[in-house]
Amino acid sequence: MFGGGGMNPRKMEQMMEQMGIDVEEIDATEVIIRQEDGTEIVFDDPDVTRMDARGQQTYQVIGEPTEREGSEPETTETESAAADDIPQSDVDLVRERTGVSEDEARDALEATDGDLAAAIDHLE
């Protein structure tokens, strides 16, 4: 890890403990790094180490990476919950007032955080 130059692993562990560094091996089966351009760097069966030095966590991933085209980002539970928070009656009201589809009405309500007047104004 630090290139101890043949240092006794036990001595290295004692020194790290004295410096307030905690090291933990993580039993990971896969690590995926998603990049802005949509590609993913994938490590199958990697060796992962988490190092905590005075509250700052660092992860080290060792393995043979492969690169692949990414998929669409998954909807998080928070995003799903936000979509579910909009009552159907609000969607129907926006549809009636503006003549748009249900999806367009829901999108407008989501974009305006459920504000009916703002959603209608946005669509008109």
Rank of each mutant, 00 (worst) to 15 (best):
V94E: 00
R106Y: 07
E72P: 04
V94R: 00
D92C: 07
L116V: 10
A82N: 13
V94L: 06
L116I: 12
S101N: 11
V94H: 00
D90I: 07
D113C: 01
D113L: 08
A111I: 04
E104H: 00
A105V: 10
A105P: 07
D107H: 13
L116F: 13
V91N: 03
D84Y: 05
E104S: 12
S89K: 10
D92A: 11
V100K: 02
E79G: 05
E96F: 03
V100I: 09
V100T: 04
G99K: 01
S101A: 10
R97C: 02
E77W: 01
E79Q: 13
A81Y: 09
R95F: 00
Q88D: 08
D115A: 07
P73T: 14
E72R: 15
L116P: 03
T76V: 05
E77D: 15
A108Q: 00
E79H: 03
S80K: 15
E104C: 02
L116D: 01
P73E: 02
D90R: 08
R106K: 10
I86G: 06
A82V: 11
R97M: 07
D85S: 07
R95Y: 00
T98F: 01
D115L: 10
D107E: 15
L93H: 13
E77S: 12
T75S: 12
E102H: 06
Q88E: 05
G114P: 12
D115M: 03
S101R: 01
T98R: 02
P73Y: 03
G99L: 02
D92I: 13
L116A: 05
L109V: 04
A81F: 04
A111V: 05
I86P: 02
D103H: 03
E79V: 00
R106E: 15
Q88W: 04
